[in-house]
Each structure stands twice: as C-alpha cells, then as structure tokens.
Amino acid sequence: MDPIRIAVVGMGKIARDQHLPAISGNPNFNLAATVSPNHGGEPGIPHFKTLDELLESSTGVDAVSLCTPPQVRYELAVSALRAGMHVFLEKPPGATLSEVVALTARADKVGTSLFASWHSRFAAGVAPARAWLSERVIKDVKIIWREDVREWHPGQDWIWEPGGLGVFDPGINALSILTHIMPSPVFLNTATLSLPANRAAPIAADIQFRDTAGTPIHMDLDWRQVGPQSWDIIVETDAGQLKLSNGGAVLSLPSGVERNEDMEYPGLYARFATLIRGGRSDVDLDPLRLVADAFLRGKRQSVEEFHD
C-alpha cells in the first residue's frame, strides 16, 4: 500500500517539534510538502508560501495537517477538502464550534477524512485511566493546570486574540482528557475568567463542572505559574484515588505508579492513517464545547496587564 502523501501547513514550533518527527516515524505517511509564509521548509522537501501555491503546483498531496492558529484554519480546511484531501486539524480544531460542524458536513459530502485531533488523549496514562474509572464510582474530580505562558507561548500574540482561547489553549488539553475518561457526560455550572486589562483572552480561570451523575469537578487554570509546572487530574473514587500527572503521561493508582513512553503525536498519526484507510472521520467537539460554555456563561474579571 502506497504511503499517504501529506503536507504540513504552518511550520511553527508544534509542527517542527511534534508533527514532523511523528510523520517521519510512521511508514503510512510520506512528507510531500510544507507550507508557511514565515518559516522555511525542510531540506529536499517542496516548500510553498501559501496553501493555494501548493494546490496550484504539480506536487502530489493526499492529506494536510493544519498547524496554523485556529483563527485562520477554516478557509484552509475548506480549500483542502475542496481539493479532495484528508484533513488533520491541530487542536483546537477551529475558532468556533459552528465552523467545525460545517467542515464535518463538507468532509462527509466529499468523502474525505476529517480528524479533530486531541493529542493529550494519547498520553500514556489516559487509556488505562479510562478503563480503571469505568468500573468505579467517582466521587470528586480536581483539575490543576498551571503553567508559565512566557515559557510555552513566548511572543505568540494570536493566542491572546479572540478565538485564540488564552489559558484555555492548554486548558483544553485537560478537558480533552476529562471528557474521554469520565463515564458520564460533563457540563459547566459556573466559571470565573480572569482577563488581563490589555488582552482579549483570559490568563486564568476557575471553573465548576459536574457530570450527569452529579459528580463535582473543579478546574483551576492559570498561565502565571512560575517554577514547577502543574498538569494534574485527581479523581477520588470508591476504590481510592486516581491521579494523572504530567499532562496524562504518569498514572498513579492505589496499586502503584505507571510511567510509559510519550507517544502522543505518533498515536495521533496512527489514528489519522487508520481513519484515511477506513474512509472515516473523527470529530469530537466535547472539549471545545466546554470551553465555549465557559466563555458563554463565565463571569469576567479584569486583572493586571500582561506583557511578554
């Protein structure tokens, strides 16, 4: 079976650190092209300033990974789908729920695969956590997701603009895990969003969720953390405590601690290949829906200005 010829659109840090190595390590894919107006390409690989330039060229491409900021992703995805390409959407899958729904319908109509990727779901501890919780009574959940924005998103102004999500850019990773491991659907009760006086997106958020079984879920998001970073989900059950730490990479159970190799992006590309070979799509909007609910229902408070 011939490899899937894939182009990476948007050659920033996430593309170089995660996408390119995952593609290189998967025999189902062959990197056919890169696209970026601001960054160079890879040695020996055709590079284009825009997706339109790629589509107008003679370079053969079957699929694209869209690693751009979400605010500009919809039009790129439409162009790719119109050209009959399979589309991988880096998280979050779009700037709004409605545009991702529209993309899903378009992909179904043209018969190509659309993949709304949630890389944290492929962290080593997530699948076994989901399996363990499926047989337990869950009493309480706490999410502590605190990091230093200056370390992880230096100079990325788009992330503070409408549609850039602010602190929910990392926070949606926690929600992608939460909605995957919880046996019952989750919804928002209350939220307080802290917005710097000079920014349009929050730098912190305090949120109360619960699931349809009545389980209380508290989420503490903050981009002002210094020192050790915190990416933890703690679940109290009738059989003891489950803890996912380091973004889901480490699973702690009453029976002990499990640590396995980080396979998030390799796992995403294995899933994308399976979808393409099987003629299917995978577009789960639950994490983005919870973020939208926080913006819809959340109380906003102004905090001190943020400057890089």
Rank of each mutant, 00 (worst) to 15 (best):
115 F>M: 12
116 A>H: 05
117 S>A: 15
117 S>N: 15
118 W>H: 15
118 W>A: 15
119 H>E: 15
120 S>V: 10
120 S>M: 11
122 F>K: 14
122 F>G: 05
122 F>P: 06
123 A>T: 03
124 A>D: 00
124 A>R: 04
124 A>P: 08
125 G>T: 09
126 V>L: 08
126 V>Q: 00
129 A>R: 01
129 A>Y: 00
130 R>T: 10
131 A>W: 03
134 S>Y: 05
135 E>I: 07
135 E>S: 10
136 R>N: 02
137 V>E: 05
138 I>G: 06
138 I>M: 04
140 D>L: 11
141 V>Q: 00
141 V>E: 02
141 V>Y: 07
144 I>E: 15
145 W>G: 01
146 R>T: 02
147 E>K: 04
148 D>G: 05
148 D>P: 05
148 D>C: 04
149 V>N: 12
149 V>Y: 07
150 R>L: 04
151 E>K: 12
152 W>K: 09
152 W>G: 00
154 P>Q: 00
154 P>A: 09
155 G>E: 13
155 G>K: 09
156 Q>Y: 09
156 Q>I: 01
156 Q>R: 11
157 D>E: 13
157 D>M: 07
158 W>M: 00
158 W>L: 06
160 W>F: 13
162 P>I: 01
162 P>K: 05
163 G>Y: 10
165 L>T: 02
167 V>A: 02
168 F>L: 03
168 F>Y: 03
169 D>M: 11
170 P>F: 07
172 I>R: 06
173 N>W: 11
173 N>I: 09
174 A>G: 15
174 A>P: 11
174 A>Q: 13
175 L>V: 06
176 S>K: 00
176 S>Q: 03
176 S>R: 01
176 S>A: 13
177 I>Y: 00
178 L>G: 04
181 I>V: 14
181 I>P: 05
182 M>C: 04
183 P>L: 01
186 V>L: 05
186 V>S: 08
187 F>W: 10
188 L>I: 14
190 T>S: 13
191 A>W: 11
192 T>M: 07
192 T>P: 03
192 T>Y: 04
194 S>W: 06
195 L>K: 02
196 P>W: 09
197 A>Q: 06
197 A>S: 15
197 A>P: 03
199 R>M: 10
199 R>G: 00
200 A>K: 12
202 P>D: 08
202 P>N: 07
204 A>K: 10
205 A>N: 07
206 D>M: 12
206 D>Y: 15
206 D>Q: 15
208 Q>I: 09
208 Q>M: 12
208 Q>C: 08
208 Q>T: 14
211 D>P: 08
212 T>G: 06
213 A>I: 05
214 G>V: 07
216 P>I: 09
217 I>Q: 05
218 H>W: 09
218 H>N: 14
222 D>P: 14
223 W>M: 09
223 W>Q: 07
223 W>S: 14
223 W>V: 04
224 R>W: 13
226 V>N: 12
229 Q>P: 06
230 S>D: 15
233 I>K: 08
234 I>L: 12
235 V>A: 10
239 A>S: 10
240 G>Y: 07
241 Q>Y: 03
242 L>V: 13
244 L>H: 02
245 S>Y: 04
245 S>V: 00
245 S>M: 00
249 A>S: 12
250 V>A: 08
250 V>M: 09
251 L>S: 08
251 L>Q: 12
251 L>T: 01
